[in-house]
Amino acid sequence: MIVFDNVSKRYPGGHDALKQVSFELSRGEMAFLTGHSGAGKSTLLKLIMAMEHSSQGQVLYDGKNLARLGRQGIPYHRRRIGVVFQNHSLLFDRSVFDNVALPLAISGADPSETARRVRAALDKVGLLHRETQNPVALSGGEQQRIGIARAVVHKPDLLLADEPTGNLDPELSAEIMNLFHEFNSVGVTVLVATHDISLVRELGLRQIVLSEGRLASGSASPVAEGPRS
């Protein structure tokens, strides 16, 4: 589904964030992207989101070169991806419901369908009872789960998460990771960037390890993993 083919990313000023990175992530797979901070995890995710473009090499998404998307194509590319941020990027000027409904509002889903899907997503993360509240009133863990609900509400093919457990205690972190695992088990491809190695080991899934912009290990799928059931 995602192919990095010898990808390098150099930022203006000469900093090399990624150096000749090649790996492949198959449809339905779940993998962790690990490495120290500054190893290039965020840059890699930004390349998949088309927030940045590679300086060298190609990033392919379903066989399409992301460098050729063009300004018009980028929003439609992003609609196929769900993203979870460390700072959850919720909007505090609207209710939990409206936050989660944002991707559906963007694609112009009809109101009853929107309500149904938002409630399903909120139910999945266990926060259906919060739908009318403002996210500012929720705890960090709850906010993160709202962010996850927003990321999956439009049924994306791919779920990306950038340090989703960065600010959470171990128990909550495990809960969040289990959520991702559950989404993967219904067929969503998941890539989670994290430095929480212990949690990763516990789940025993594929690791793509970056070190100073280079791929240290995990370039190929250990097993051709299909959707878990």
Binding site: M51, P75, Y76, R78, S89, L91, P103, I106
Partner: peptide, 16 residues
């Protein structure tokens, strides 16, 4: 600004 960034991240077009 923040809202615009989030909208663009979840696939909002310029038009939206």
């Amino acid at each position: 600004r923040e809202e615009i960034v989030v909208i663009k991240l979840v696939g909002g077009t310029d038009r939206f």
